[in-house]
Design a protein around this nucleic acid. Structure first.
Lengths: 353, 353
DNA sequence: CGCGAAATCTGTAACGATACAGTAGCGTTG
DNA sequence: CAACGCTACTGTATCGTTACAGATTTCGCG
């Protein structure tokens, strides 16, 4: 047919109707597939005008690279995996976490895949799966432990990740954390300011890193502000609400009963309140309470409890930014963040009523 | 070298160390790549013994098909996409939903990808994206509307999906729903049983299908049990807690004040309680309340509120099963489920204290 | 005028899987 | 015994992309 035009776009006109590929653009521009590919990546050996032309056509026809093609060829999955325990949390912190992560990923080519693992018996399972199958370019993990085998494994195998919570392995890696030490310290200050002296802490489970953070803050506060720590290790925030309530009711009925409580979780606080009331006492009178919360229900329903808000959505955002930074090769020490607790102001009453 | 053995496994010995592929198995068994592929899918034209041998080797070396390879060749993504609004819900129903879905997917080859869309302005955005890029084999959507353009689009384009909530388009499709009509009806019964007569409903936003379900149940209850409906349409469960509280406080201060409340959401209930109390009245005395809840916080903190539990985790499971069923070609009418409300028993007090 | 370098562009092979169109071997049948 | 059909297996092409190793053209410069 046309003997003049070099037979570019190798085989023939691409089948119409389907989704556009590099071949489509190659055909439309009269360029080679390789050129188009390189033009779209802004490679240095492609002419400026050509790049412009390719970009224009690509945008016009709504070209989007085929993820499977890229993944097969390069190994890049463009996937971030959020690894979760199925058992995780009564009071969904997963919700805002997922939302926060996707907010960041929405501006990128990354997709979020949720990878669960059942029961604490095999936390390495999903990590191994991701490593073995190359399922993701980066991983976000939570419930971080001081010596966390997942962190070890991911580091060894050079898979980028970010942890919600810190580790204590002398290993610098991306993380986001809430300053739980500071929270507990300030909580104690608040209670002492209000005349409370005999304090208890409903602590995180001992295996997680922020257990010691919170304990440290609590104990430092108790020392600095001249209070007294009442022992309460029978339960932690991972226990059922019923277990927490029962244990705390018992404590409140005993001669050791505290007059101030710091709760490491919002749902734990609910159980503590129930325990106090089951013992026939009143929150805000017989005992005052400060709790870390992921929402503001408690503030609405029990304004007498002082709360510090931990914004999980922001945590999700920070974690997403951190993994991506890690993937892009930024040094891990620049990918760490710690968010500071702030007391929530008392509930605003509507001014106009 | 060995002239006798036919040169099977086409090129040469696969590079060691990497992850096993069909080629690896082909090399190990001395079969062709095609044979291995077909053996693993239990194709009828492969000998029983050969299949056995291939399966054994595959299991031994931990073969897992490369998702990108499959996806590129067949178009099957093995992905289910959960489409969410970023703004969605204060009280995370996303958490248990995600958990429920992954519980089901864990037993399959499917991965869960969370695809968000910002603001209600473009609910079709993510759907189009998935359709255009072939990003998933199936989709789960929520906040379903009576005439839902997403459902129309997905149906037209034959992409399997399941909706959380029903539609009213004369179109049979997979869904899971909570029986909100029944909930409201039974809620009214409960209130009337306790001597309440002037009732209000805090309703879902009018654009969602379950708005009319809940209203219908409410109104039918009001008729059947001889109560009276007090108008309260200024706000719905999508409004801010502050807005709900203020509106309800106003109502409670007016001569029209109701003595019974049905709340379509747990967080809404919290705002209603605040409204009642802001008006100087008491929940359980001046007005009684029944609420649908996704957790049991309310029961712990405000046992005077009667609650019906909607198990979102189960919804997640049902939806996952439904999409997969749809993908596998089961008729949609067999992929519909409706979960029945149940009153929650009053909080169990610990017997041993 | 010839030659090398620079600037652009290109074809081929490969990633791992599968659809498709075979082929080889063997027993049956007229 | 030729033709046929069946069983069991195989090679090739292909999905969309990119790495790599050219190829072509232009231009400066001796």
């Amino acid at each position: 047919m046309d003997g003049k035009t070099k037979n570019r776009a190798t085989t023939a006109a691409p089948v119409e109707g389907g989704r556009p590929t590099l071949k489509t653009i190659a055909f439309m521009t009269g360029l080679g597939v390789t050129t188009v590919s390189r033009a779209l990546k802004d490679a240095p050996d492609i002419g400026a005008e050509t790049k412009e032309r390719v970009r224009l056509v690509a945008k016009q026809i709504g070209y989007q690279p085929n993820r499977a093609g890229v993944r097969l060829r390069t190994g890049k999955t463009n996937v971030i995996s959020l690894v979760l325990t199925l058992e995780e949390e009564i009071m969904g912190i997963t919700s805002p976490m997922v939302i926060g992560i996707t907010e960041i990923l929405a501006g990128t080519q990354y997709h979020l895949v949720v990878t669960p693992y059942s029961s604490a018996k095999d936390p390495l399972g999903p990590i191994r799966y991701i490593l073995d199958t190359g399922a993701a370019d980066g991983v976000i993990i939570s419930r971080t432990e001081p010596t966390d085998p997942r962190v070890t494994l991911l580091t060894e195998r050079h898979l980028p990740f970010a942890t919600h919570g810190r580790t204590e392995m002398g290993l610098i890696h991306p993380y986001h954390d809430f300053d739980n030490e500071r929270f507990a310290y300030e909580a104690v200050r608040k209670l002492v300011d209000r005349g409370r002296r005999r304090l208890v802490l409903l602590e995180p489970p001992p295996n997680l890193t922020f257990h010691s953070h919170m304990r440290t803050g609590f104990e430092r506060g108790v020392r600095d502000f001249g209070a007294e720590a009442v022992s309460f290790h029978q339960v932690n925030i991972d226990h059922s609400l019923v277990a927490i309530r029962d244990a705390f009711e018992k404590l409140m009925r005993s001669p050791d009963a505290p007059d101030g409580v710091v709760s490491g979780s919002g749902s734990g606080a609910i159980a503590l309140i129930a325990g106090i009331e089951a013992a026939g006492k009143r929150v805000g009178e017989d005992a005052e309470m400060v709790s870390k919360v992921p929402s503001d229900f408690l503030r609405w329903l029990r304004p007498e409890v002082m709360t510090m808000y931990e914004d999980i959505r922001i945590a999700g955002r920070e974690l997403a930014k951190a993994v991506i930074g890690h993937i892009e090769g930024h040094p891990p020490e620049t990918l760490q963040s710690l968010s500071q607790p702030e007391f929530q102001p008392p509930m605003a009453r509507s001014p106009r009523l």
